[in-house]
Design a protein around this nucleic acid. Sequence first.
DNA 1: CTCAATTTGTTCGTATGTATG
DNA 2: ACATACATACGAACAAATTGA
Lengths: 262, 262
Amino acid sequence: MHSDTTVFQKSRMPLYLQVAKLMRHQIESQAWGFGEQIPTLDELERTYRVSRITLRAALGQLEEMGIVRRTRGLGTFVAKDLSQERWFKLPTTLDELVEAVADLKIRLLPIEEGSSSRPAPSIACGELGPSYRRLLRVHYRDDTPYCLISVHVDGEIFDVAPQEFSSKPIIPQLVALRGVRIEQAKQTMRITVANETTARHLDIGVGDPVAHVCRTIVDDRNRIIYYAEIEYPAQMFQIEMDLMRSATPAPRRTRTTSKRRP
Amino acid sequence: MHSDTTVFQKSRMPLYLQVAKLMRHQIESQAWGFGEQIPTLDELERTYRVSRITLRAALGQLEEMGIVRRTRGLGTFVAKDLSQERWFKLPTTLDELVEAVADLKIRLLPIEEGSSSRPAPSIACGELGPSYRRLLRVHYRDDTPYCLISVHVDGEIFDVAPQEFSSKPIIPQLVALRGVRIEQAKQTMRITVANETTARHLDIGVGDPVAHVCRTIVDDRNRIIYYAEIEYPAQMFQIEMDLMRSATPAPRRTRTTSKRRP
DNA sequence: CTCAATTTGTTCGTATGTATG
DNA sequence: ACATACATACGAACAAATTGA
């Protein structure tokens, strides 16, 4: 067991994994720059107050993931630019949402389609409709999965174009549909952990942190026409917020193609 | 080592900790309700495909944290309502920000005051001013820490009322200050891991997930007058977003006391 | 009160992983 | 690389407490 006055006791995670996470963060935050040499084992021993073997185990983890490259007699070097891994920015308006999924090159993979599943559980506003269609799918970018979505779409609306809804992004279609008027749209973000299913589909470990987003869209009859639960690997995830935006609802139009403000 | 076809292999975290996290999530999501009995060891063995000993180690973790209570011959019961732990909602507008810190009963603890520290590193807009004052502090609610803040305030502004700035929430004072006109305010949220310092102050484990918020406020001279990096324990954290809010800046007034819309 | 069913707690043997010096 | 100590994980059997018949 390790020594005494460290802060590592609180967590029962193996020491070398805790250290590996701290090192990974050093690289992510560019305290240790891409391509640069990281401190020597002697220095790291003093910094983290753990044994040499523990440090080697931690570095072994990072090397296995291709994050560092070690050469005897030379040193350890950062071999992957983790500062670029946080590319996904969660849309914070309906317009952004339409733009985002339209712009990104994503591949949709239907995984399991218990087509006529139960209505959506919810922590939100609006009333449940009589029937829903459920889709479970994974979004990819460059062959790497970046989110797992479970979505319920109002039955009547889905049946207008089942093929389209099953194979393409749903939000843009909802917004474009004549006869559908979106009255409310909200989402909530929490930090949770990956379960077996999520871990498998997102290629992460069970218990790893994920961003859990819960999104609800309500039409002018006050009916929930879209309810989605989405999970993103924490490392890829980011939200940018403009604190000066108006807190009141504002313009009704969402189909607009207007870009940024002039 | 454990058997075969489980998904647990990907992570090198001890199996019992992975299981503990999954069970904790069951309780948090109220799949296992407060006060209710959770499945028996035999059932859990089949569900998670792990040995009795591993389950007991996992349950031991939860019992240690007061989350479950075990009685021989009776069963294991949920002893804490984790669905109430996610009370903190990150403000998403300047108005909310002012309201939030004003409303909450918080205790501010100055911890370390390298008063005239270096200017803020930034991933944002606006220009750096000539001098900053840095404060590092922890916010408490009911004697439990819920965030660690490192904030840089423009030197000139800080010196107007150093006592006030050091001991009270900063944002409301900035907003109320005459002669200061807030032109931009943005924040970014990421999911990172607790380092030794953060873990100590927030009473969590090293490597545990935290919500990392980076907030910048710029005045009408395009100068950064406030730059903060804030860390929240992931379990307490939540963001609620209204997707229908206008994407364009909107009203300038922020000192207003107007409540919700009528 | 006793009995049986249920459920958690304990122990043994064995193997591997983690951590120190 | 070695010696040592402790933690993790399995399976299986057995012990002890609780409940209700």
